[in-house]
């Protein structure tokens, strides 16, 4: 509550010099952190040997070293993604489109699903004009994939901050759309939010908000694309556990999960 002697116009936080708004200070700091991350890592990296991962952990760390060994027996290499809170969407988007460069049949199917998605979003009440903007950009990239552009060009698209973020936004909208369409089911899994719509407004639609199982289930179900996530955490034995989304589907995208972050794996 306000102190009896506080002046009008002041926010509650007195620790900051006058004229500096608390929220603005937080936002400025977040921008600085994002900038630092951006300077040290690409949105989507080059292929790297999985052996490089083992250098990130102590040699005596038997759990992680064991898991990396297990991972190397199953996968050839990996691409890092930038840890900016959008990594799941970006990793999924790039990895799946990269795969579609060599899978015409699935591309046809995906193009149809993606084309229809715009009307679904508009019918849910998203502003038609912005949805259209993101949808058009998304479809342009899908068409480039149809023309079988070289992987380097697809990589360049995903490394272009603005364009890449446009694709992330559209995937976030699809995730939100699927959650809202299946509200009756998902309402059982959201804690601390009154409705699925509110959850989406806080945890799905804003940029940089991280993804959890519920996001992955929604996006993979919405596009009917199987994703296998290999979990590398402290849990369990010296083998990596995996989980397929949606359950029981054949995975087309392989992601490596380390607490708070997703990278792309290659067989």
């Amino acid at each position: 509550m306000a102190e009896a002697n506080s002046k009008p116009g002041e926010s509650l936080d007195k620790a900051l010099p006058s004229g500096v708004e608390y929220d603005e200070a937080i936002m400025a700091q977040q921008d600085r952190i994002q900038q630092e991350i951006a300077e040290t890592s690409q949105l989507i990296g080059d292929h790297e040997d999985l052996l490089l991962l083992s250098k990130e952990y102590s040699e005596e760390d038997n759990v992680y070293q064991g898991k990396i060994k297990d991972l190397r027996s199953k996968y050839k290499c990996f691409r890092r993604t930038r840890g900016d809170g959008n990594c799941f969407y970006r990793a999924f988007g790039f990895s799946y489109l990269e795969r579609l460069l060599d899978d015409r049949k699935d591309l046809e199917r995906f193009k149809e699903v993606a084309a229809k998605s715009k009307d679904m979003l508009v019918s849910l009440g998203f502003p038609a004009f912005t949805v259209e903007d993101f949808h058009d950009t998304f479809m342009e990239v899908v068409e480039k994939v149809e023309q079988q552009i070289p992987v380097e060009d697809l990589l360049a698209t995903f490394r272009d901050q603005g364009l890449s973020d446009y694709l992330v936004v559209y995937l976030r909208l699809l995730t939100s759309g699927y959650l809202q369409q299946n509200e009756d089911f998902f309402v059982n899994f959201i804690e601390s939010y009154a409705s699925v719509k509110e959850f989406c407004g806080h945890e799905v639609e804003p940029m940089a908000r991280e993804s959890d199982h519920i996001h992955i289930i929604a996006l993979t179900s919405s596009l009917d694309v199987g994703v296998r996530v290999e979990y590398m955490d402290r849990a369990g034995s010296e083998e990596v556990n995996h989980h397929d989304f949606p359950e029981g589907t054949e995975p087309k995208v392989f992601l490596l999960y380390r607490p708070g972050h997703y990278d792309i794996l290659y067989k």
Binding site: P127, T130, G201, H202, E205, P206
Partner: peptide, 10 residues
């Protein structure tokens, strides 16, 4: 105008 901004807004 803060953390709940989404790019689909105008």
């Amino acid at each position: 105008l803060k953390d709940q901004w989404a790019a689909a807004m105008t």
